[in-house]
Design a protein around this nucleic acid. Structure first.
Lengths: 357, 357
DNA sequence: TTGTAAGCGTTATCAC
DNA sequence: GTGATAACGCTTACAA
């Protein structure tokens, strides 16, 4: 009898295909076919093999199988964090589509750490993933070099960037936040604050900030340095930042753009504490459409990305690449959810029905 | 030249250990030793092998390696959802501890679906995980049977249940919510409402509800059926439920226990809409200490579990099992964060300094 | 439709 | 210290 694997209790080892084969009175090859090409095996034999496998609790051995097939049937995805729920729909959808094609998703969480991402990718390549999805492209270049040298198809998600060296799938973060700024400018706002999570290792946040800056600049506007806050992803940072932005009564913005809804929630709390009315004293925007956003007082104007669709498209993109096709990058659009936290600037309201120059 | 693997571009195939060996003028065995038992290979040879491996971009082939070692160096963890951030610290800590021991975490997300959990576990067993961590024990029994028949060490987390058939690691959900109810009873509350996520496929929620019921019952109290709400995990459900609970002005509870902070947030929104004061008109409790809880108006009284510690302990538990040890189940305690949303019941307050019977 | 046998890429055992 | 060589468990031509 074979010796047991390390760390397992004594007793009989896990059954192998050959054990099933012998018990069913067939060859190993027939056992394999029963599971992989059932059409090629006579029904009564198939039933017999299936019954034996069930009885002895046999499952194919992944490593042996991967070795023989030269396929792992695994796809990897790296996401930056589990701390918010925003990747839930993306991952779930990806998982579902891949499962429909007999593939398994390997999930890696980098915690916004490029080194962790590199370790995750290396570990996945060693495990033999056939394709990879990466959130964003802010990784060290040798991470991509390693993927490319292995000729593993991959795609960068949550961003659309036709000038990138990598295929991308997602929203155009620059254009989307450019649109947010224009939306507020359209209400007559001329002074802005912005509160965002860290730009380091996150080209999406960087693009969002640039988009806002560009839109303001096109209208001869800018954000005062004291009104530009960058710090931890957290409602607490949103709250503290808003207090700081409104500390100087002489220089108060009439609109504050937040990088996400969680930060905006904190800002709303601070506004209440400071006795500021939204949107009376200033307009506030979020991003992501957190489940709480529509329930806030006032309901938060935010933007929503169809992340389930993104997950589906990502899986399909990779499956097509594996099938030898050359799918194109795709641009998704964020949908505005215009709610109560945004409105006309005070200066505009005071003009009554007159138009703004 | 070997043919390429399916789905990859034409060109040379991935390098193997033998390619590195030949280029470095050593045997395959030495290449293997260089990576797995570096002490056993002469430094200058080691350097040479490492240099060649680096140059040709060789990484050991996981399947081949797993097959030869009869070890996958992988540990699986199944979590129920990615929708809230509550598993972030748990997963991150687990991942870190396992990595320190050269093991990789495979993450599966069941979305609270027992079938998905079963598929995830089967897929992980096929991939050869050496150990498994499962959140909760509300799975079909054949899921555990399959794990056990493979003799794969496992642990059930986020619950402590010494009477369970499985080793558990986490808080005692019954006792914890029993404590929450007693905490409120101590304030003089006699009428209660409760808003919880679905109990189906979630023995933790079931235990929490039972804990509250038991504490009330011990004090001759009960929750009116109309004040017991069970539904989707979401702030919106919390809001709707609170409105329903307070619809009948003649029968209003003085305390509402929520299954988590998200639901409590919704309840707070509803209270504001209904013109109810917290804790003046009723006390409200959450669970999990969401980052937003301390910022709410009033700050939400909630309970916090050290999930990073739980993740660490889970990884250590499994590593010890793999090392042939027999670690014990462990009970964690939830820590109360007593904030502004709880206080004395109106009846008690009106008694002034008198004590409650 | 089924069986035989040659891999798949690595590690571990045993000589040297 | 190093090198042959035999596994590891499965799949897949190819033959029957």
């Amino acid at each position: 009898m074979r010796p047991d694997a390390k760390g397992k209790r004594s007793g009989e080892a896990a059954p192998r295909a050959i054990d099933v084969a012998r018990a069913a009175g067939v060859s190993e090859a027939t056992v394999s076919r029963t599971f992989n090409e059932p059409g090629k095996v006579r029904p009564e034999v198939r039933e017999r093999v299936l019954a034996v496998a069930e009885r002895v609790g046999w499952l194919p051995h992944g490593a042996g199988s991967a070795l023989a097939r030269r396929r792992s049937l695994m796809v990897g995805a790296i996401i930056p964090t589990l701390a918010s729920g925003i990747f839930a729909n993306y991952v779930t959808a990806m998982q579902r589509v891949l499962a429909e094609h007999g593939m398994t998703l390997l999930l890696g969480v980098s915690n916004h750490d490029p080194d962790q991402a590199k370790r995750d990718v290396a570990s996945m390549l060693i495990r033999g993933v056939e394709a990879l999805a990466l959130v964003g492209e802010a990784y060290e270049s040798d991470l991509f070099a390693q993927i490319q040298s292995r000729k593993v198809p991959y795609v960068v998600t949550h961003t659309y960037n036709p000038t990138s060296a990598h295929p991308t799938l997602g929203i155009d973060n620059f254009a989307t936040f450019h649109g947010i700024a224009r939306y507020l400018i359209g209400f007559g706002h001329r002074t802005f604050g912005m509160i965002v999570p860290p730009r380091s290792n996150n080209e999406r946040v960087t693009a969002r900030v640039s988009g806002v800056m560009a839109a303001l600049s096109e209208n001869g506007l800018r954000i005062r340095p004291a009104h530009m806050k960058e710090g931890p992803w957290s409602p607490a940072f949103g709250r503290d930042s808003l207090h700081e932005i409104f500390a100087d009564r002489a220089q108060r913005p009439s609109a504050v753009i937040c990088g996400n809804d969680q930060i905006a929630f904190g800002a709303m709390m601070a506004a209440r504490e400071a006795g500021l009315e939204i949107p009376g004293d200033f307009s506030l925007t979020g991003f992501d459409d957190d489940p709480l956003s529509s329930l806030m007082q006032p309901p938060l104007t935010t933007w929503r990305v169809d992340n389930a669709r993104l997950g589906r498209l990502t899986a399909e993109f990779l499956l097509e690449r594996l099938a030898g096709m050359a799918p194109s990058p795709l641009r998704l659009e964020a949908e505005i959810l215009e709610r109560g936290s945004t409105g006309a600037a005070a200066a505009v309201r005071s003009l009554g029905s007159e138009n703004l120059t």
